[in-house]
């Protein structure tokens, strides 16, 4: 009688532990980090298609030189059938959520949602999707501020939110007329398309605005950088 442990299923005598091949895909986004945060420069980390039950999703990490960090995840559900009366164009809805923190009051969050909805109404080819709804959810996972004395500011997270939604829409294969991205200067955010020739959204809380043209010009420079990053990742 062998004294064998019957409760345990033993493998064959010369079995070797499994060794998984290093997943090459996960390393690609790592290269997407354009800059290292230690260098004090802005850096972005992009990854897409992580929410499996969404039609498209994206995850963005944004770090500026001063260890300000914004982590945002967007997921796109749709186009999916819309109940109710006939609509000849798609209706876009955007929901913003703070996952781990509560910095903003509900009024501000609603403001962000209406603003973003307006931006993406201009960009998504809504004529292509009659009777459908496109629901976009943004989760702000983390927003750490280097300067704790400073008030929490929507301006800091808006560009990342816009970039993130754009990536999620691309991932979902929803028709958009251009990659929309935004640049921010001080307390203003401007969202552009068409290489900065067209503005799709402006949000300025800067009470020192004197020269609107300068402001737009400065934001445009940032926009072009951001857009370049998105294009690089998609390639």
């Amino acid at each position: 009688m062998s004294v064998q442990d019957r409760r345990r299923i033993l493998g064959p005598a010369e079995a070797k532990p499994l060794r998984f091949a290093v997943d090459s895909e996960t390393s690609i986004p790592e290269e997407g980090r354009t800059d290292d945060k230690k260098t004090g420069k802005e850096s972005v980390f992009i990854s897409t298609d992580l929410v499996t039950n969404a039609n498209g999703s994206s995850y963005l990490e944004y770090m500026d030189g001063n260890s300000d960090q914004v982590l945002v995840m967007s997921s796109v559900f749709g186009p999916r059938p819309l109940r109710g009366s006939f609509q000849s164009k798609a209706s876009v809805s955007i929901q913003f959520k703070e996952v781990t923190l509560e910095h903003f009051n509900t009024g501000e969050i609603k403001e962000i949602c209406t603003f973003l909805t307006n931006v993406f109404n201009a960009v998504i080819n809504i004529e292509k999707y009659p009777k459908s709804g496109i629901d976009i959810f943004i989760d702000l996972i983390q927003h750490s501020n280097s300067n704790p004395a400073e008030e929490e500011n929507i301006i800091k997270i808006l560009p990342t939110c816009i970039n993130s939604i754009t990536m999620a829409l691309v991932d979902a294969g929803i028709e958009i007329i251009d990659l929309v991205s935004a640049g921010s200067v001080d307390n203003s955010v401007v969202a552009f398309i068409r290489n900065g020739h067209e503005i799709v959204g402006i949000w300025s809380d800067d009470d020192k605005v004197s020269d609107i043209s300068r402001l737009i010009e400065d934001c445009r420079v940032k926009y072009l950088q951001n857009k370049q990053t998105l294009v690089q990742y998609l390639r």
Binding site: F115, T117, N118, V119, W203, V209
Partner: peptide
Amino acid sequence: TSPIRSVG
């Protein structure tokens, strides 16, 4: 002055 916003 600000706020300047684009509104739908």
